[in-house]
Design a binder for these strands. Sequence first.
DNA 1: ATTTATTTTTAGACAAAACTAAAAATAAAA
DNA 2: TTTTATTTTTAGTTTTGTCTAAAAATAAAT
Lengths: 217, 217
Amino acid sequence: MFSLSEENYLKAILHLQKTSKSGVNTNALAEEMQTKASSVTDMVKKLSEKNLVIYKKYQGVYLSDSGRKTALQIVRKHRLWEVFLVDKLSFSWDEVHEVAEQLEHIKSDKLITELDKFLKYPKRDPHGDPIPDAKGDFHVANKILLSNLSKGEHGTLVGVKDTSSEFLKYLDKNSIALGKTIQVLDKEEFDESMLIQTDGKSLRVSPMVAVNIYIKQ
Amino acid sequence: MFSLSEENYLKAILHLQKTSKSGVNTNALAEEMQTKASSVTDMVKKLSEKNLVIYKKYQGVYLSDSGRKTALQIVRKHRLWEVFLVDKLSFSWDEVHEVAEQLEHIKSDKLITELDKFLKYPKRDPHGDPIPDAKGDFHVANKILLSNLSKGEHGTLVGVKDTSSEFLKYLDKNSIALGKTIQVLDKEEFDESMLIQTDGKSLRVSPMVAVNIYIKQ
DNA sequence: ATTTATTTTTAGACAAAACTAAAAATAAAA
DNA sequence: TTTTATTTTTAGTTTTGTCTAAAAATAAAT
């Protein structure tokens, strides 16, 4: 169907599209794909010819309906494999990314249907991100950033923005985990740092931490 | 580490090496890889430079120790994934090959270690073929072909030579399965066909079937 | 032992996906 | 509104793995 490279570009465009109202620009895509702008232009042209993206020179690129559908299926596969790795093969949430990046490109409808069934149709991956269904639909939670909570407020940790191994290990070390309740005991005006309580312990976190944790109130 | 293509060549050489005492010749490898002899020569040179094979012009190719080790790890991965597909995702034994061909190239030591554990360290794949361990060692059964049994003899079905979907479906249809006991009720001198009994039923099979079933007495 | 046939290798080309360097278009600044 | 800076595209290469066609080596046959 589509090449490894094409699939990765579609996924990257989907990702960047979420954070920009206008089209995804070449340099941003080059940065995301760890490649050069000229390579991006070449690939975007190819995707455009296959009607996976809408592209006008110098105007950035948008996913077409069929491109979005394809990209969402790759995301679906990625997240299902992440659940598999954590739930069945005892990977921790900071170890799954690289492997899922490979597994997401395996081509077999039956495989993904059966995997979904085997995992009992999970709705979210180990980082709290929603798993699109076979049609590409998924549930968007009305989550907010921990940094937006005020003193005294509380909520449940439903996701993380930064999924880097370093950040996830920091959370593990401090017993901050998905599903846990977080209470804001205090907020320092000066540096925006917060004193939070979770899992029985209290802990001071910098804004760099607080802006990477999603809370549902 | 190695490219998809390199891995597939190593696997093909391992496969062909079993059935020929001398080196694997270019045309056989081209046939196995569904490519042209000239392409094979190119790739074999590359593998030779990486010390994965021993190659002298016009003399055929042999796996080196490191090439054999690499090839066996790919076979290990292929067969473990086959077990996963059949045992956990309810694939049937005639559906696993294509998907396992893709999964065998996923690169992650932890993945395969954990998968092996998850599957309870299986010794054989769904077709009865042995699964090499992490060192590349595996148990070779002293199996014989069904066609070599005489009238009155019996044994257990421990493997199949032909793993094509067509053959496996034929076996399924006639309740001939791995682990079942097979008894030779009669053998026709004229066409070498056999009357066998398995799973309570008796059935006449042609030599084409009998030479593709492995028996352990 | 030649001739003929087969197998294998070389030489040159191509497609995919990347690159560098330079040109063109757009955006920002004076 | 020019000039300057930035972004994007084009043009021409490179690498990997393939191909075709032709040459060279080996094997088979007369």
